[in-house]
Design a protein around this nucleic acid. Structure first.
Lengths: 318, 318
DNA sequence: ATGACTTACGATAAGCGTAAAAATA
DNA sequence: TATTTTTACGCTTATCGTAAGTCAT
């Protein structure tokens, strides 16, 4: 059994059981891939794929079990290489951060500025996506860290490190009636058309919960994937916006007025997601600490080894 | 990077950094092993071993990190092979049980009898050792299951499945004064020389605790590794014995008298220990269920995935 | 001087890529 | 017929084992 065979196997699955595409992705020849898979099947004494004549159609039940372990082994092989790099040159390497629009645009910039100054030789890249995509990237090893607010608790190979709590603001055009009210209420909000996040994003469910708890049905006229779209439509008068507090920039967003709404909704917690069994290089610990000062290396290491402890720390945030 | 290189690496460490012995154990030549390790070090860009001239003396810090992952990968490779066997022939394979004298001699026989009748083509082997040895065998993959009472909670890659509770009996020669007492007490026991288990074994600590709690200092004149030695010395009048209840056989041990002592000591729980990340073949689940009827396949799978749940079930046993 | 690892080298075997064949859709 | 996988074959490369060399204890 060879690691390369396992790599071939994983790539074939990744390419939807298309051997030709897998061979291309692996920069090698189809016959070679075909052959190695046959050898692997022969050695394990199992048909990993079901074939209709000469066409691969499905993965078999044992094949799926084998795939899972193979993926794990390849991740471990990557970890070995990372250890090598780590001890060779602690200042160089790559860091791939998967995150959402809100984080990338409004939260991460200062941290990233500090990081690239401290580690100029690290190739840093940001990958933007939905919370679900983000999680799956980290889960599959395509990214090192996920930074988001929702839907990252679903993957249980990810450890979620709570970073900070935040809440919402309401934004309205200048001279909007809501600006006259003494204290903003959900009832008042519900009288206007609302522009806010899409369901999968940025604590949207907390917004729904708050209205539902009071028996209110908010009139949501637009669900956007990011705060900039929300702002745009609030500016043209489509409705009032509900967005993350940190997504409002007093200096830049001069065409809008902001009303704090922290008393109306449950706070949300932004978390860093990280694979449980990945080898974490020194500068990654450093990045995490730059982003959330309480998450120093020892703390993170402790949480990675004893994920149960997370429960208590998360609860204490609520 | 090749799996074989990792295998070489692990074997060298296992053989106390002796390359020659490792090569012999691997049925290959020293130069081959030497070369492959060099290639691995070169590929990872790391010195795995420190050498004094041409002699390997220590493993380096990164080397230790690499070793750990390498071992994990090799275990996964074994799991792949096991999956192959599992789907080829569910009725054949091997099962290595690491256990203590008490279990092997007094508890396991009926279960094993049933098992070999049900699975005549499984090569079953028992390996007897101290609780610590047992745990390390399972931990390293040399054995599939550990069955014992103590000291197996220490390895955190092992999941411990509670099987049954038991307590002690006191054994004495015929016509011993203790047989006349209405209800046995620790105070009464403490007046006689005591023969019992060695510290590492079979709930010995529970015995110490019970005496200590009453401020008694038992006069332990012999600590044995197994119940048969205890019986022998009780028979020749060295003292009274304290041993696991199930280790007394009314039919066979005719030269001794037994007094129940379950009210004097905290009960102990016998557990099955199993590696968290091992692939568990069908017949192993079956064996576990034969040994402890409440541990059916679904239950065990659940516990392996969510070890936290064990805590509650263990607590409820106390 | 013995034990232990590394280097050198020839034989064997494994893997790769091109070309051709087979089989599905 | 076009796409995809398998088989065939020659070439390159890597691996293994023996033998010789080098370095500590």
């Amino acid at each position: 059994m060879k690691l390369q065979q396992l790599k071939y196997l994983c790539e074939i699955v990744k390419q939807n059981l298309n051997l030709t595409k897998a061979a291309n992705a692996l920069h090698t020849s189809q016959p070679g891939v075909s052959r190695q898979i046959q050898l692997l099947e022969q050695e394990l004494g199992i048909e990993i794929f079901t074939r209709h004549g000469k066409r691969i159609t499905h993965i078999t039940q044992p094949g799926a079990a084998i795939l899972e372990i193979a993926q794990k082994m390849l991740r471990d092989a990557d970890n070995l290489k990372k250890i090598g790099q780590e001890f060779n040159d602690k200042e160089s390497g790559t860091l791939i951060i998967a995150t959402t629009h809100t984080q990338a645009r409004y939260v991460l910039p200062p941290t990233i500025k500090r990081f690239i100054k401290r580690y100029p030789r690290i190739r840093l890249s940001l990958r933007q996506g939905s919370p679900t995509e983000i999680s799956s990237w980290v889960s599959s090893g395509e990214a090192d860290l996920a930074i988001a607010t929702e839907a990252i608790e679903l993957f249980d190979e990810l450890i979620m490190l709570p970073c900070y709590e935040w809440n919402r603001s309401v934004i309205v055009p200048p001279q909007h009636p809501l600006l006259e009210i003494e204290e903003l209420t959900l009832e008042a909000l519900a009288q206007y058309a609302i522009v806010t996040y899409d369901f999968a994003f940025t604590g949207r469910s907390k917004i729904n919960q708050a209205f539902a708890a009071k028996g209110l049905k908010p009139n949501v006229v637009l669900t956007a994937l990011d705060a900039d779209v929300i702002k745009t439509y609030v500016e043209i008068g489509l409705g009032v916006g509900i967005l993350a507090k940190m997504a409002f920039d007093t200096e830049r967003d001069t065409g809008l007025r902001v009303i704090d709404a922290a008393h109306l909704f449950e706070p949300s917690t932004t978390r860093i997601g990280i694979r449980r069994d990945s080898y974490i290089r020194h500068y990654i610990y450093d990045f995490i600490e730059m982003f959330a000062a309480h998450l120093d290396m020892d703390t993170v290491k402790g949480l990675l080894e004893n994920p149960e402890r997370l429960l208590s720390s998360v609860v204490s945030h609520k």
